Amino acid sequence: MPGILYLVPNMLGTHDGSTNDPLAAVIPTEVKALTARLGYFIAENPKTTRAYLKLVSQSVPLARTIQEIRISELNVNTSADALPALLEPLLAGQDGGLISEAGVPAVADPGANLVRLAHTKGITVRPLVGPSSLLLAVMASGLNGQSFAFNGYLPTDAAQRLKRIKTLEDRSRSEKQTQLFIETPYRNGALLEAMASGCNPATLICIATDLSLASEAIKTQPAAKWKSELAAGKTPDFHKKPTVFLFLAA
């Protein structure tokens, strides 16, 4: 009988060291206990996964030493041909955990294809409770939480990015749907400027940075207000920080 593929949540960023259990506020005790007993992980980054397991061990002893835990790598460069081998331990009866670099796996994450393959092979998939930056951003934005769409990354070319923003703003307006994006953190400023200048002045824009961390900052206001603040040099403190961008057209 195949093992179970657990979708293991991770923190959304590094902790500040101010608490003995930095996971306490974001990862349930039961999830930490289940994670601690696994001996096989499929990880976006093995190094940060080992660091995460060390944090887990501060409150729940690991069933094996970190050196004994097997960690296979799955990232954006992993080919489809390599996926079956990652599931071989589970097909042999061992439980395993899929873990992302941050947040929950298989959402804006290369693990989705592995989860799909697990289903085709009859492997039970169990998602575990943990922080999702996308859902936290929707919750805190004040925008429409009944209908929203995640659009991943927008084009890096300025003209193509503006065209995409206009298209999604039209969709947001016609469907009353919140639109979500993420960006490579060093390009956060360029994306906000494009949204502030390209959107209708009344369109509501939310910037949600460092969610669940001590440095968390969330702000929603019309595009016109963002544009005037940027013109005055009042840029959010979000350079090189993980940020979710949202807007709802007026």
Rank of each mutant, 00 (worst) to 15 (best):
E183A: 11
L180C: 14
F245T: 11
T203K: 07
K241T: 05
N144R: 06
A149Y: 00
Q177N: 15
E193D: 13
E216S: 05
K163Y: 02
P155Q: 03
S174R: 10
P201W: 03
D237G: 14
P222K: 01
E169L: 06
I182N: 05
F238V: 05
A202Y: 04
A231N: 09
K225L: 12
S172H: 06
D237K: 14
T184S: 14
I165E: 05
E229M: 05
T209E: 07
P155D: 05
S197H: 08
G189N: 14
E216D: 06
N151W: 00
I205F: 00
Q160E: 09
T209D: 04
N151P: 03
E169K: 03
G233H: 02
K225Q: 15
S228Q: 13
T235N: 11
L248G: 10
F247M: 13
A214L: 06
P155F: 01
D157R: 06
A202T: 07
L213M: 13
Y153V: 10
S215Q: 09
R164A: 10
L246S: 04
K219S: 13
D170M: 06
K219A: 09
Y153M: 09
S212R: 02
N200D: 15
R171Q: 14
T220L: 11
S141Y: 01
A232E: 11
K234R: 14
K176I: 12
Y153L: 09
T167N: 03
L191A: 13
K241H: 10
R187I: 07
S172I: 13
L191V: 15
V244P: 02
K166R: 05
Q177V: 15
K227Q: 15
Y186H: 11
T184Q: 09
E229Q: 15
K227I: 04
V244R: 04
A196E: 11
A194S: 15
S172G: 14
H239W: 07
P242V: 06
F148N: 13
F150S: 13
P222Y: 04
L230I: 12
A196V: 07
Y186R: 03
F245R: 08
K166P: 02
A158C: 03
A223S: 13
K166D: 07
K227T: 07
E229F: 00
A214I: 03
K176S: 15
A140P: 00
D170F: 04
N188A: 11
L168S: 03
A231M: 04
